[in-house]
Measured scan of single mutants.
Amino acid sequence: QVNIAPGSLDKALNQYAAHSGFTLSVDASLTRGKQSNGLHGDYDVESGLQQLLDGSGLQVKPLGNNSWTLEP
């Protein structure tokens, strides 16, 4: 069960990665100043990332080996 409060997208993504045990490689300029609506409930990694990114204009991309990145 994930419980991440709304706020900074950077912070939300870092909390989610730490909670879910995956690696997220992101260029900080992509997420700077963006906000997230947070995340509450049970999600697989990709669904949770998509939910956190909702409205940010960013997309999640798998890199393999439980690693992910973001792209515009």
Rank of each mutant, 00 (worst) to 15 (best):
N3Y: 14
H40Y: 14
G33R: 04
F22P: 04
S56A: 07
G33H: 08
V60Y: 10
S29H: 11
S8M: 09
G41N: 03
Q59S: 12
S67I: 14
Q1M: 14
D44I: 07
T31Y: 06
Y16E: 01
L9G: 01
L24H: 03
H40W: 10
L63I: 10
L13G: 00
P6S: 09
E46F: 14
P6L: 03
V60T: 07
L9M: 05
A5I: 06
V60L: 12
E46C: 14
T31W: 05
D44Y: 05
N14A: 15
V26G: 08
P62V: 08
N14G: 10
S29F: 10
Q51G: 05
L9A: 01
L52A: 03
L63E: 06
Q1I: 14
Q35E: 10
K61Q: 06
T23P: 02
D27F: 05
D42Y: 15
A17D: 02
S8N: 10
Y43A: 00
S47Y: 08
L70G: 01
Q1K: 13
G7M: 13
G57P: 01
V45E: 04
N3K: 10
G48M: 04
L52I: 09
S67G: 08
N65I: 09
V2G: 03
D54K: 15
Q35G: 06
R32F: 15
L13C: 06
L13D: 01
S47K: 11
S56Y: 05
S8W: 12
Q51N: 06
Q15L: 11
E46N: 07
S25L: 15
I4N: 01
V2N: 03
A5R: 09
W68R: 00
A18W: 08
G33F: 07
Q35P: 03
V45N: 04
P72Y: 11
F22R: 00
G7F: 00
L63V: 09
G57D: 07
S36M: 00
V26S: 08
S29A: 12
K61V: 13
F22E: 02
S47F: 08
A28T: 11
L24Y: 10
Q50E: 10
L24D: 04
L9N: 00
S56W: 05
S67A: 13
S67W: 11
G57E: 04
D44P: 07
Y16C: 07
L63H: 08
Y43D: 01
